[in-house]
Nucleic acid binder design. Structure first.
Lengths: 336, 336
DNA sequence: TGCCCCTCTGTAAACGTTTGCATCCCTGGG
DNA sequence: CCCAGGGATGCAAACGTTTACAGAGGGGCA
């Protein structure tokens, strides 16, 4: 087979014009005679020509690539966000390069990786990366436009939610239905990932209880490990309390699914015997009837992608706080 | 800020050697004096030099990038596979470029995209892409090593499962437990994606019933739309049958989750009143106790990544069939 | 007619690497 | 003492584009 594809020179030779004219014709630049342009375009189609990306990138400085950085793939949040991000860039003609850079640890190495990564992309989306250790700015790592999803970062645009407020709202929903013994199935802080999320959601839970004049019973706060299995285990621990909760707020839907299953196994009906509210609006939450706080990750991804393109076009940095609406479904009901 | 990073020339000037020597020193090539090498390496670290990827790729022809192509992100399967794929390449120092090429439709445009995509990567992983319309080979689209996950493709290595056999096994599991009225919650063929998966799983279901001497009742085959909500709707249709099933095989776990929920809503206990088996081993299947056929997508992704690297190293094309073990959990039990 | 401007095209210099080839120097064996 | 051989280095030509600049030709206007 033709191991080497035709180059712009081949097109030039075939059509009898210079490479400069071919380049202009194929990129719809002005100052090309219509007849010339169509001859060139035809020849290119005929030879099945496609520009060599590296060469054009080297020459132009534009990469037409966006980098997406996440701490780990395999979890729900970054995957979902990537879906939204990717759909936008695919339409806009950008490539999407993904990278699992682990933020802290070897800082020197990270900086070097980041610098090298930058050069391959026109802009960067950070998903839950928490790169900033002690208030560094995005410029410290990247010299490209950056949008951070799920965290705020000096010098970058950001798309975040108010975790504390949303957790408070979730807890208030239970309070409003008359519950007074409210359990918290918490996600633990992640190793090597200095995320404020667990703490913020915990604080929101406390805010709600205190505002309602209730004391926060530490016995009602258990670790659910961010997984469904962990959620199930957490509920069984909660049920061993001297005075078990009548409602549970879970920091993630996955843990809530586990809680629901454990409840069923124990013969507790939801919401009859136990109200459960989650956090995320996981793919399955709607179909399974879980009341939850909707974190529209894919929409946030879409918005992040649009924001990167805006930054590339020179628009200023901006912070966006995404709304987290309460989705009342079928796992919460009035107490008693 | 320094808008332009140091180039290899800067290192050369600082250390007083030629760019060629710098290039060799930094890439650990032989024929560089130890003293020279360490001087160069130090200078590079000092200046925070990182090679310009486009330039080095243009010159060397190696891209150190792997392309991952999937028809659509946002669904469970490709995401999960991407996780596995990415973990391998991240370790091996490859970038991962993702692309949502839609296979059929405008074939000319697809070919052009594919050709252009090729040039950016050293190898390609196709996830459930079903590019081949009438037996085309991988060479028709790509002139790079290709590994296809979930489909077979002439000229490419592949990682697939035997959908028909696995579906048969799932159905046999129900038969072995004494069920004779077995419903099938089917996923419909996907629009614009000529996948044989739905048909194969349907055939496997029929194989099992026929081998057991049962007739296939078309009333027991309903469409679950590949979603949990669709699965729930499917079960309610099945229950309207004159003679409803005592067990259900769902072509995906997500549909099975919907079935389980609908059963609970109708007061049917699983597995007491209704046995349910799924297909996939979704993240949540274990924690929710769903009996299912385990399609270890992330492992398949890992293997796919390793296979691409093997192809790049010149090893021959090979087809791998991945095992799909039965995971007996808590949603299936003996009939009656 | 002369001038200017505008459209179209070509020439050639970037872009920042990698790499084949030539060169220089040093060491060791005959 | 000479020469072969090989390690270390430099030179310069790729790699395939983009783009600044120059120039040719033609039309309109004074």
């Amino acid at each position: 087979m033709a191991n080497s594809r035709p180059t712009i020179k081949d097109i030039a030779r075939v059509t009898g014009v210079s490479v400069a004219t071919v380049s202009r014709a194929l990129r719809d630049l002005p100052y090309v005679a219509p007849a010339t342009r169509s001859r060139v375009v035809e020849a290119a189609a005929e030879l099945e020509y496609a520009a060599h990306p590296q060469a054009s990138r080297l020459a132009s400085g534009r990469t037409w690539t966006i980098g997406v950085v996440a701490p780990q793939f395999g979890t729900w949040f970054p995957f979902r966000a990537l879906g939204g991000i990717n759909s936008v860039f695919a339409k806009a003609g950008y490539d999407v390069l993904i990278s699992m850079m682990t933020a802290p640890g070897d800082r020197r190495r990270f900086l070097n990786d980041a610098r090298s990564f930058c050069r391959r992309v026109d802009g960067i989306v950070l998903i839950d990366t928490f790169v900033s250790v002690e208030g560094d700015s995005a410029d410290a790592f990247f010299d490209r436009p950056v949008v951070a999803v799920g965290e705020k970062l000096e010098g970058a645009s950001s798309i975040t939610i108010d975790n504390r407020l949303a957790a408070r709202r979730a807890s208030e929903h239970l309070l409003e239905m008359g519950h007074e013994r409210i359990g918290l199935v918490a996600g633990p802080p992640l190793p090597d990932l200095p995320t404020p999320v667990p703490e913020q959601r915990h604080l929101g839970y406390q805010d709600a209880l205190r505002a309602a004049g209730l004391t926060v019973d530490p016995e009602l706060v258990v670790d659910g490990g961010w997984t469904a299995a962990g959620g199930a285990a957490a509920l069984s621990r909660l049920l061993e309390c001297s005075s078990p909760p009548t409602a549970v707020f879970c920091m993630s839907d996955e843990m809530a699914f586990g809680v629901l299953r454990e409840a069923a196994r124990c013969g507790l009906a939801a919401p009859g015997d136990l109200s459960v509210i989650g956090f995320d609006d996981h793919d399955l939450a709607g179909a399974l009837g879980l009341t939850t706080m909707r974190q529209a990750v894919d929409e946030m991804g879409v918005r992040a992608a649009e924001t990167v393109m805006a930054l590339i076009d020179g628009e200023p940095v901006a912070d966006i706080t995404w709304d987290v609406p309460l989705m009342v479904r079928e796992t919460t009901a009035a107490a008693g």
